[in-house]
Amino acid sequence: MDPFLLEAIVNGILLGGVFALPVLGLNLVFGVVDVVWLCYAELVMVGMYCVWFLYTQAGFPLALAFLVCLPVVGLLGLLLHQVVVRPLLNSPPITQVLATGGVIFVLQGSAMLAFGTDFRSLGVEMPPIEVEDIFISGTKLVAFVAALLGAGALWTFLKFTYVGTAIRAIARDREVMPLMGVDPKRIYMVASAIGGGLAGLAACLLVVQLDVHPYIGLSFGPITFMICVMGGLGNMLGGFLAAFLMGVIVSTGGFWWNTEMSYVVAFACFIVVMFARPRGLFAR
């Protein structure tokens, strides 16, 4: 195979790992609370600024900046739920989605006020790794591994803890949960905080690869929604797999055309998939 194509595929898989985290976060929140956080990418943006600020301005070690970023964005997710979504829980779904859409402007505006519109770079670069004929970016590889670890941690939590099991249960039947002593409001809060935390983790992995600016959410937000829908809203495994599929589509599309066209192709694929499998690729 053409080494450049191979490289594109490998990069696509690495990219999919980074897409996977926001997709898991969105699916978690959607599955539990039944709301699509339209501002999810902006939560990631705030996390990126958080790491950038702590590392380059406050002089924190990078690892510590990462460690702080997770709970900060997790808290932001919780705040988003409590302040914006919770008062609207009994409203039509569209108003909930739109309210989180309004938060896009709030977060973009806040970021601009705090840090201006300049592109901010972390200035961290790892040497590329050469395997056979292809070069793999060290940062991307580390990000990929970290994303898989994050996804694994989430899976472990959902599979083996009481709260995690309750989260998987509530996605199917929220009315019956109080009979088991589960307070749905608490579960909503936990899911929102974890959803935010995943955005924080995604932020850590993205900020080493991309410059951060207030509108960066727009560059990967839409595709994360597409991936979620492709995998089936609320379907964690489906979303996880679709993330890699989309990553490869984008990456190989970039190999044949250019980056923008690759996104056009990816979105077009998405629409076609929706027509073929309206409930997602992996709907049962």
Partner: peptide, 23 residues
């Protein structure tokens, strides 16, 4: 035990019991 049982069909038997032991 509610009408129509209302189990979580996508969870295993033991996971259903686990949700029952949430408190």
């Amino acid at each position: 035990v509610p009408e129509n049982r209302r189990l979580f069909p996508h969870l295993t038997v033991e996971e259903n019991l686990k949700v029952g032991a949430y408190i």
